[in-house]
Design a protein around this nucleic acid. Structure first.
Length: 549
DNA sequence: ATGGAATGTTACC
DNA sequence: TGGTAACCCTTCCA
């Protein structure tokens, strides 16, 4: 661990402008700036547009050239959305950017301020069926009675590596060889990185011609990786040689316009049957025999015709039970043995596009979904009432065309099947630097267990993967790959829970202790941008090597 | 240092 | 229903 020794613990970052009061009602220096930006006269003129009765259409805005400063979100004057220093000020005329409810901004959103980070409690009624109880009894032995202590990989190890030329779109740890991380990018390249020997990395550039959406492995031969791509192909690549075989090509005749170009998103392998499942952007599912590389049957419509199927997951306990999710706002459960448009076992409704849907990894009995309505949903039992989720957790992971969609993913090592990792879209002002943490959420309570960040990572970490065996987190943040490891003290503490410091679990509580960077003399002038940059530069120096290729 | 491009989904007609 | 403009806390590089 090359960097663990440089500082025993990362300095804790204080969050600024945390509450409404601080940022909006206090009469600090910032207020004066505001008044300079918006002199009284500037506000009055166009108030008529505000008076238009709801229902009536607004007049198209007259074409006038004005030097007045307007809000870049709503184009109205009198306020301005955007960063002020490292704090983002919302447009007050838009619904909350976090919970999507009108009437307040992100700054004062109850889901943001609350430690619980926005849980909507499960309904009180008992929704369990007799089948559910039988299943619970079967599983009871597997489920621990005491909540496990989580060890959070929160310290950057191995530097920041940049060998992808476009943003990272998917990550997967090698199934058997520890220390090997595979990564796909928007350009279609496949990266293989031995993060224990930093310089051992390979990039294969000619497997796909655009976005690699999924990487899965062959269980028969763990030297082979399957990849699905928006170029409409599935490839099987030998990770040693880079030689790849085309398993499926949905665009054999090349480009015939966007209405005909097929892209492959969701993919999974039914290891029991040796069947590879992929789904396209028109709602269809394709099955392939892994041994013979032959297509099985005809494509099956699993989501609304013409809509993208973004995710597929075979149940880890019953691989014939398939979970799909798509742009039609649904996640669906299927019996893969009797697939057909009419044979859907359950449809889970969402407010928006569903970015991902996963069965829990040990018992396969829970479902976790991430939707573009900024909510993470958990169904506690696939045998229970699936009409509404057991819990909805409000969390900022909006869609943005420039970002790889966020997906909440289970910690494969958590025996209680509750811990989940997901990157956060909205930033916080951490002592003058706007950072986008990676959130660890206990989905059984909705509590934010840890927010992981580093001042050298100012971009959004949309792709996150927890190691199947080690206390390691891999992140893809724009073009950068990161490996986070847990601190040694945390391991020791896990072995001896009674010696565990209180702040061990909730990093938020730690922040106030050592809120400052170094010996910064900038006082409390908060949002001074140049000051923030200086701090950033100072932090960068000598902390750890930046590895860029 | 600053503005433009890349670019997917949704809302609205 | 299909077509298209808008868009929202991006990121990188001319």
């Amino acid at each position: 661990m090359p960097f663990a020794s440089s500082s025993s613990r990362p300095r804790f970052l204080r969050r600024e402008a945390d509450s409404d009061e601080e940022s909006e009602t206090s009469s600090s220096g910032g207020e004066d700036d505001l008044e300079e930006d918006f002199p009284e006269e500037a506000q009055v003129e166009e108030d008529t547009t505000d008076e238009v009765a709801p229902g009536k259409r607004k007049k198209p805005p007259p074409i006038t050239i004005s030097l007045k400063r307007v809000c870049k979100v709503c184009k109205q004057s009198g306020h301005e959305a955007g960063f002020r220093g490292a704090t983002y000020i919302d447009c007050p005329r838009k619904p909350c950017f976090l919970c999507k409810t009108p009437g307040h901004t992100t700054m004062s959103c109850p889901h943001r301020v609350a430690m619980e980070h926005g849980v909507i409690p499960a309904s009180a009624r008992n929704t369990k069926t007799p089948l559910d109880y039988i299943f619970m009894r079967q599983l009871k032995a597997k489920i621990p009675k005491i909540k496990p202590v989580y060890v959070i990989p929160d310290q950057v190890d191995c530097g920041l590596i940049r060998f992808h030329s476009r943003r990272v779109t998917c990550l997967e740890f090698h199934p058997t060889k520890s220390n090997i991380l595979l990564s796909g990018d928007k350009k279609g390249q496949l990266g293989i990185w031995n993060y224990d020997k930093q310089h051992e990395r390979t990039i294969y550039g000619s497997i796909h011609s655009c976005i690699v959406n999924n990487i899965k492995f062959s269980l028969r031969n763990d030297a082979m990786a399957y990849t699905s791509s928006s170029d409409g192909t599935v490839s099987c690549t030998d990770m040693e040689t880079g030689i790849s075989t085309l398993l499926l090509d949905l665009n054999p005749d090349g480009w015939n316009g966007p209405a005909n170009w097929r892209m492959l998103y969701g993919m999974d392998v039914n290891t029991e049957k040796g069947v590879l499942l992929v789904a396209d952007n028109f709602g269809y599912l394709y099955l392939l025999d892994v041994r013979s590389n032959v297509k099985i049957g005809e494509p099956i419509l699993v989501h609304k015709k013409g809509s993208k199927v973004v995710g597929l997951h075979c149940n880890p306990v019953q691989p014939d039970v398939l979970l799909s999710c798509g742009n039609d706002h649904f996640a669906r459960i299927w019996d893969a043995r009797r697939l057909g448009t009419e044979s859907c076992l359950a449809s889970l409704a969402h407010g928006r596009v569903v970015n991902s849907a996963y069965f829990s990894l040990l018992t396969g009995n829970k479902i976790l979904t991430t939707s573009q309505d900024n909510r993470i949903r958990v169904w506690d039992s696939i045998f229970g009432n699936l009409e509404s989720p057991s819990r909805e957790i409000v969390h900022s992971h909006d869609f943005n065309r420039h970002l790889t969609p966020f997906r909440a993913e289970w910690d494969p090592k958590d025996p209680s099947e509750s811990l989940v990792v997901i990157g956060r879209y909205i930033s916080e002002n951490y002592d003058g630097v706007a950072l986008h943490p990676i959130d660890f959420i206990d989905t059984s309570t909705g509590k934010l267990v840890a927010e992981v960040m580093d001042t050298d990572v100012t971009t959004i970490s949309t792709v996150n993967k927890l190691h199947p065996r080690d206390q390691i987190l891999a992140s893809g943040s724009s073009r950068t790959l990161l490996i986070w490891k847990a601190r040694q003290e945390d391991w020791e503490a896990k072995k001896q829970p009674e010696k565990r410091p209180k702040q061990f679990i909730f990093r938020r509580n730690e922040k106030k202790a050592n809120g400052k960077f170094d010996s910064d003399s900038g006082g409390d002038s908060d949002d001074d941008d140049s000051n923030g940059k200086k701090r950033k530069a100072k932090k960068r120096q000598g902390k750890y090597k930046k590895l860029v290729w």
